[in-house]
Every structure is written in C-alpha cells, then in structure tokens.
Amino acid sequence: MKRMHVRTLLAVGIVAAFAGLVALSYVQTAPDPADSQYYLARPLSETGASNRVAGIYLNYRLIDTLLEVLVFSVAVLGVRYYLRKSDNIDLPDLSESEVVQTAVSFLSPLALLLCMFFAIFGHISPGGGFAAGVIAASALLYVAIAYGMTATEARWDPRRLAFAEKAILLSLLIFILVPAFVGKSPLTDLLPKGTPGDLLSSGSILIYNMLIAAKVFIGAWLVIAAFALHRGEL
C-alpha cells in the first residue's frame, strides 16, 4: 500500500515536471498564429496540393523532408548493424490464441487499405507517406505477433526488402538532389499540377508520398525483423 503511494507520487512528479517544461517553453517561444498566414496566403495552385501540410513538406520544404527520410534510414541502418549478431538459442515460435489470430486477419487488410489510401490521397486529404508506412508496418507487426515470426518472415523476407529500401532511398536522392545540383529547383513538377483536389494534381507529391510510404514501411519492418532475429523470435 505504501509502495503504491510512492509510485503514484513519483508519477505525478514526473508528469508535473514535463508539463511544466512544456508550459515554460511555450510561454517563452509561443508560436505566432500569423506565421501560418505566410503559406496560407499563397495560391493553392502553386503546389497543387489541397492538403496544405503536404504542400509545405513535399514542395516548399522538400529538402527538409528528404533529410528526415535520411535520418530514418540511418536509424534503420544502425539498428540492423548493431542487432546483426545474435548468440541466442532458438526460442520456440510463440503464436497467439485463435482470438488474436482472427482479429488480426480481419484488421490487417483494413490497415493495408488505410495505408494505400493515406499514401495515394495524401496530397488531397490528411495522411501522407510517413503515416501510411507506419500503419502498414504496424499491421505486419501484429500479423507477426499473432502468427509467429517464422511464418511472417517467409512471406516478407527482410533480406530482399532491405535491397528495395536502399533502391527507394537512392531514387529519392536522385529525384530530389540531381536537379538541385544542376542549378534547377528540386523536381516538384514531375506530374502536372492539375486542379487542386483532383487525384492527379500537385505535381510530384503523389510520387513522393508513395515512395516515402514504401520506404517507411520497409524500414520499420526491417527494424522489427532485426529485433526478432536478435532475440530468436518476436
């Protein structure tokens, strides 16, 4: 009883400290709502994306997004490098009960559908490549938890996917950096800008969203697979 008390007090303290820090930083550097007007005042046809957020991070701030993708790639690389060796014994395949398996087999196709929706319509409605990739990787992770890693790995072989991940990163780099180096603006107009709100609009944002979704999906799955390999099983 007394121990429970200490735990709760500690929890309250930690939450209060973090909330205080956030409040303090907000008071000192509160964002000015007028800042957003800079982007909102620009015509929608400039990016062609009716989702303003996608327009900012895949057009105006494309290089920032590229660096973000690079950071993620480095993280995946690091995890795969350090979890490469394993001295574990072969642990038995843990698979969950039929209830979990049924729930997962019902939900994971829906999650994959949601992933595709967010990737393909990311420039029109909320979503985007990052969220789409994470959704797909989570869906696959839940499949692996329910059916065991061995069965899931057989279908989604990490070694083959690792190659695809690097290929996507390379193509993103070429897409974005080569035009910049030859003195032109980064490739944002590979597809026509079109009418904002149409599926085929917003230039290259559609392509970037799909590439990022695939990249994040594979990257997250590789991390999970490395984790499983290191421990012998999920």
């Binding site: 957020v53 909320p126 994470v134 959704i135």
Partner: peptide
C-alpha cells in the same frame, strides 16, 4: 489532422 494521424499510428 495530419499530426493526429501520425500520433495515432506511431
């Protein structure tokens, strides 16, 4: 909504 989606998924 974009941030909300990311927060929910991650």
């Amino acid at each position: 909504p974009d941030v909300a989606i990311t927060e929910a998924t991650i």
